[in-house]
Design a binder for these strands. Structure first.
Lengths: 341, 341
DNA sequence: CTCGTTCCCTAGAACGTTCTAGTAGCTGGA
DNA sequence: TCCAGCTACTAGAACGTTCTAGGGAACGAG
């Protein structure tokens, strides 16, 4: 049975209303609402009762205005990236128990990163967590001059001083994928890359290095790609026309790998019998029974935990280990890889 | 060349700082920042200059605290629903030009709808837009007693008075799909439904009615499903075992349809040659060249526009047409439907 | 020259909260 | 008896903005 609010619309109850009803000062109500010490048990009860009755809810904006700390972390994310959704889930899970609120700002068509970060700053966030930011390093540096900034998944080689970086060891992930394929007996292993997407350069490099280390430098084949299903599908079509046709392919991410799988199925090329396919991320997609994709898993909860942790550490003046926080990837072997025919 | 902020951290510049630097009152700076009338051209210029120099940004929280209107719309969405992402994009596109800001609150594992709406209320949103809310009608009614609430995609047959509903005509969409298949010559048309998801009941009903109207009541076959790829895949497996095997299937949504397609491809059942498949939503997924799914399109920009429009209309005291806002679906014919073999 | 208007600008209150500095009343020890 | 040290409470300032009221100067009309 929800308590009927005393005031229907527009005027929401304030501390003063509660105070008047309970016959105490607003300061005391504030104390009770914050569960701070300095109020007697009986009065506390009476105040809570009064608050309940008139449906009082604290106004966070006024609260933040007054207290110099806002305990608010701004998170910028891309609306169309499932990977970001997964990260966000982790961010919430870590931040809220630590006593920090999350303010979200989406990057979408017609709403660029500048706009997204501007609103976060205007909301008085204490720190910024940027998921896969694409903004120029200079812009990130500018932000970092104002408040702690954490870049997740985007590497910044000293070009934006002050920005914390949390990322997966992308090159290592690509290496694990290649090692796995080589161990199965593959030699013609192609890579459909991620173009200019965050992490793409490292995965490309990891692939190249691993191939060389196995003496397969001359088999290296990098096909231009991107981070969508379509990019993967296009890459796969190019792959089918190649001679000799590779027996395995490492896609930039799971979305791209899905595109590859689909194209191969359509072309009646059995996976993994004729071609093995590996994705990257271990997103929900890869785990679906009917996709069952072998993939390089990113430790998403760990990435989220590190990102939030670094932001909070910077805010609370703790000492932070120098340099990037790099999380190890882990190959997840499922059904799309096997020995070559 | 970004201007170097005068104050590095913590203390961000305020109106007073700008005022001091420009040699005017804070009230005047406020006027200039809001682009309100009441300031001379020369002074205006000088103030803007000063603001620029010290990197001033208005503090929205303080701003909202003072002005009785907050011009803030709270939007609750599900992190794992691409359809919600698309809607959000539309919401931003409509709200910001209309002078309203958006506060996002995600529903995720471990963060339920109650939590999501609570934070929105604490942030002083003026109205709530809930994307596919699953909360009990009583809770929605409780919210609606406090402020304007719009439910998108979830139908509420009078069980939550005061809640505005904006949705697609799901039954009509299902009808269009069936009509299209019947026109192609199909008679054995199955439906993999959405279980208890918002809209599922209407689509199920629309399918049944349309089948009856074509004299195919005895061919009706509804398979239990859901809103994920896995649900679709499971439905498709059941479908393949059926005798007689249907020649066409209407999935609950595009995600489900993707699962169906994948299962059929794997089973070497050619689409659309042996089985036609229709999805629902016309999400990004369906438009991908390699999926190329015939689907019932929801008019996402229109849904977003109506949702925001109703919220704003309620806030500004405009007269709103009674009843739900129902948007017409439109069948998008692509490559997964054809005449039966 | 005076009066009203208009334009530019300012002082100070207000928004709903938290914080600082205190007051009043009690308990207990010397 | 006195005071130190608690606990329970309050008044009032402060946060950064916008709003209300108004002040002074310039100008045109009478």
């Amino acid at each position: 049975m929800p308590p009927t609010p005393a005031v229907p619309h527009g005027k929401r109850p304030t501390l003063a209303d509660v105070a008047a009803r309970a016959g105490v000062s607003t300061a005391l109500v504030s104390i009770v609402m914050r569960d701070a010490k300095g109020a007697g048990a009986a009065t506390r009860e009476r105040v809570l009762q009064a608050a309940q009755e008139i449906g009082y809810r604290p106004d966070t904006r006024a609260r933040l205005l007054r207290s110099h700390r806002s305990h608010l972390l701004g998170v910028q994310f891309g609306l169309q990236h499932p990977f970001h959704s997964d990260l966000l889930e982790g961010v919430y899970a870590v931040a809220e128990p630590a006593g920090y609120q999350i303010a979200l700002s989406a990057v979408a068509a017609g709403r660029g990163e500048q706009r997204a970060t501007d609103t976060l700053l205007a909301d008085r966030c204490e720190a910024l967590i940027l998921l896969g930011p694409q903004a120029p390093a200079a812009r990130l540096a500018e932000l970092a001059a104002q408040l702690p900034v954490v870049s997740v998944a985007r590497r910044l080689r000293g070009s934006a001083p002050g920005v914390e970086v949390v990322r997966t060891a992308d090159d290592e992930g690509a290496r694990q994928a290649v090692d796995h394929l080589v161990a199965l007996g593959h030699r013609d292993i192609a890579h459909i890359d991620g173009g200019r997407a965050p992490g793409a350069a490292d995965r490309r490099r990891g692939y190249r290095t691993a191939m060389s280390r196995h003496g397969l430098a001359d088999r290296v084949r990098v096909l231009p790609g991107g981070l969508t299903e379509e990019d993967g599908a296009a890459g796969a079509r190019a792959l089918l026309d190649a001679a000799p046709r590779p027996t395995a392919v490492l896609a930039f991410n799971d979305r791209s790998a899905t595109g590859v799988l689909d194209t191969l199925l359509r072309a009646r090329v059995p996976v993994p019998d004729e071609i093995s396919v590996i994705g990257f991320d271990d997103s929900h997609l890869a785990r679906l029974a009917h996709i069952n994709l072998t993939t390089v898993g990113q430790d998403i909860p760990r990435l989220a935990e590190l990102a939030v942790g670094r932001a909070i550490a910077r805010l609370e003046g703790e000492r932070i280990p120098d340099g990037e926080a790099v999380v190890a990837p882990r190959l997840v072997i499922r059904g799309t890889t096997a020995e070559p025919a």
